[in-house]
Simulated assay, not measured.
Amino acid sequence: KSDPSVDLVHFTILRPPEKHDGTPIGELSLITFPTHELFDEKLDEFDLIVFDRYKRRGVLSLGYFLNIVEYVERGGAFLAASGPSFASPFSIYRTPLAAILPAQPTGDVSVGGYRPEVTETGRRHPVTAELPGAEKSPPEWGRWFRTIEVDADGGDVLMETPDGKPLMMLARAGEGRVAQLLSDQIWLWSRGYEGGGPQAELLRRLAHWLMKEPDLEEENLSAIAEGGTLTIRRRTMLEETPPARVTLPSGEEREVPLEEVAPGRFEGTAEARELGLYRIAQGDLSAVAAAGPLNPREFADVRATAELLQPVTAATGGGIWWAGEDAEDTPGIRSVRAGQDAAGSNWMGLRRNEQYLVHAVHQVPLLTGPVALILILGTLALAWWREGR
């Protein structure tokens, strides 16, 4: 809710279906949970679906869970913030969602204070890389007190407990993305418990990664040209990366080696003396960077005007027309000789300069001697035969 770039639609189930107290339906102030509208009719309108400690309680049928799975595999995003219910018989893992979730509950819940830690994979991943407080061991943030124990079925573990139990997992399902938080204690950070932690920044990155923000892609290549220097930045989950291939504005190609400046981050620099567009490529990734003045002359005044061309047209006998939506605004086109005016009130001229250069002339006879003789004799024979009739 703290991210102004995200429109949040939040539904809380306050009255489960199994609750019966005899109150007439017409006197209830709570609306019926719009399951069909949310999970069938308008499901594809959402960029991200979040289940916050949700458990099976008869609100959603298995068909709606299957709709969510298909939505994710078509390119959607799903975040499961798990609580103790994930380890219970009412777990959402016991639905079709198990096909896309990267963690399988063991049925156990660990209770006890600990400080979440970023894994080696997490230090390279843009969601958890360089989180405030994570640079020290143990991290400088508050403790959590509960963990949902799971068996990792796939995906990447970005955060874990000190004894190696997964706390945050990311995975891909089809064309979509899935994330799981395996503790319901992150709210302690927002309350400042024991100094708190980067709760808002972590959830912001997590949500935007799920929604495929380019700046949070694991494999990313970018470049910027400033002060005569081209800086190339490469983010990758690999431990090494090959040099980047740079194509200068003149067409010349160079290789720029990249050095690791932080886990998962590589940088390289090269001189950018030429003005224009630099193209950088590495494998399937590519980027561009423009080198030149920040305020080039052609962008000083981008208004459409004829004043700059009037001296040229006056000296050459030409004219200027503004193209309009009506055909009447379009001038006619004529052919004029060199030296004549090339414009009128409603016409424009294309000059016939008649300037050309003959490089060579090559002549080929249409008929050779034998062929011509045969045609002549054939014509005479045809005429004699016709006259004889």
Rank of each mutant, 00 (worst) to 15 (best):
K55A: 14
V261G: 10
E135A: 13
A262K: 10
L375R: 05
L131M: 04
V336M: 10
A103H: 02
P249Y: 01
V336A: 08
Q310W: 00
G22L: 09
T305L: 13
Y278E: 09
I280R: 08
N67D: 06
H359W: 09
E267K: 12
A171G: 07
L350N: 13
E140K: 08
L48N: 07
Q180M: 15
Q199C: 12
G369A: 10
Q363W: 06
K19V: 12
T316F: 03
T32N: 05
G155E: 04
S85D: 14
P365Q: 07
I25H: 06
N353R: 06
V358A: 12
V109D: 04
I374Y: 11
T229F: 04
E253L: 05
G22D: 08
P365D: 11
T236L: 10
S85A: 07
P138N: 03
E267R: 12
L367M: 15
L294E: 14
M348K: 00
N353Y: 05
D52F: 02
N67K: 13
L101D: 03
R245L: 09
L258C: 10
D108Q: 14
G283V: 00
P116V: 06
E252R: 15
A270Y: 00
R57F: 01
R352L: 15
R204F: 05
S222L: 03
S137M: 12
R273G: 14
F46K: 08
E73A: 12
V150H: 00
A171H: 06
I280W: 00
S222C: 02
Y93D: 11
I13N: 12
S88W: 04
E27F: 03
S250L: 03
R279E: 14
E298T: 00
R124G: 04
Y54W: 12
A200Q: 05
D284I: 02
V157E: 13
P139W: 01
W187R: 09
V288Y: 08
E27Q: 11
R273K: 12
Y114C: 14
W322F: 08
R143W: 07
P84N: 14
P89W: 00
G251M: 05
E271C: 00
L238T: 01
G283Y: 02
M237R: 01
I186P: 09
V9D: 11
A99E: 12
S345C: 04
Y71L: 08
E18K: 05
N346E: 14
A304R: 13
T247E: 15
A200R: 01
I376N: 02
L62E: 13
L158E: 01
V364K: 13
T32I: 02
L66E: 15
W141C: 04
T229Y: 01
I49K: 07
D44H: 02
A77L: 05
E140Q: 10
S29F: 06
G317I: 02
L203M: 13
P296E: 07
E135M: 11
G176Q: 08
E213N: 11
T95W: 01
Q185W: 01
A152S: 07
G317K: 07
A129T: 05
A323F: 02
L30V: 09
I376W: 06
R351H: 04
K165Q: 15
N353T: 08
